[in-house]
Simulated scan of single mutants.
Amino acid sequence: MTTKQSPRTPIEPRDLNAPFFNLRETAWLLHCSYETVRRAIKAGLLPCSQRVPGGVIVVTREDMAEYHRRTRTSVVRTRRSTAKPARAAA
């Protein structure tokens, strides 16, 4: 028996060089969930378009790259001190 995949599960795009991606493909490319992509669109952080009202929502490669550039977090690495803290006097 085969199992059905959820319609909200991120999937790998068939063509990684395509100019447009649907929401599931966008989620896979951004390494996030389908719901995160929908929230970003609703908040106005990720532009999207539809050819017809009620149709498939698509995101352009350029918009996705701009969203990633604006929202990615950088890792700040701090240097760990190798010196041990001073002992209290007895």
Rank of each mutant, 00 (worst) to 15 (best):
L16K: 12
N17A: 03
N17W: 02
A18Y: 06
A18S: 13
A18T: 02
P19V: 08
P19D: 04
F21D: 01
N22V: 04
N22R: 02
L23S: 10
L23W: 02
E25T: 07
T26W: 05
T26S: 14
T26F: 00
A27C: 10
A27M: 00
L29E: 09
L29P: 09
L30D: 06
L30I: 01
L30R: 12
L30P: 08
H31E: 15
H31N: 14
H31V: 12
C32A: 09
C32G: 04
S33I: 01
S33T: 13
E35M: 09
E35P: 06
E35W: 09
E35N: 14
T36Q: 02
T36V: 01
V37Q: 13
V37L: 05
V37R: 07
R39E: 02
R39A: 03
A40Y: 02
A40H: 05
I41Y: 10
I41N: 04
I41G: 02
I41L: 11
K42H: 10
K42P: 04
K42N: 10
A43S: 07
G44S: 10
L45Y: 00
L45Q: 04
L46Y: 07
L46A: 07
P47N: 01
C48M: 02
Q50W: 00
Q50V: 02
R51A: 10
V52P: 00
P53E: 15
V56E: 15
V56K: 12
V59T: 14
T60C: 04
T60F: 03
T60M: 04
R61L: 00
R61N: 13
E62K: 08
D63K: 00
D63N: 11
M64C: 06
A65Q: 12
E66S: 11
E66N: 09
E66C: 08
H68S: 12
R69W: 01
R70P: 05
R70K: 15
R70L: 15
T71A: 13
R72T: 14
R72P: 04
T73R: 15
S74N: 14
V75P: 03
V76S: 14
V76R: 14
R77G: 07
R77Q: 14
R79Q: 11
R79I: 11
R80L: 15
R80I: 14
T82K: 13
T82C: 09
A83L: 15
A83K: 14
K84C: 10
K84Q: 13
P85F: 00
P85A: 10
P85S: 08
A86D: 08
A86W: 00
A86R: 13
A88W: 00
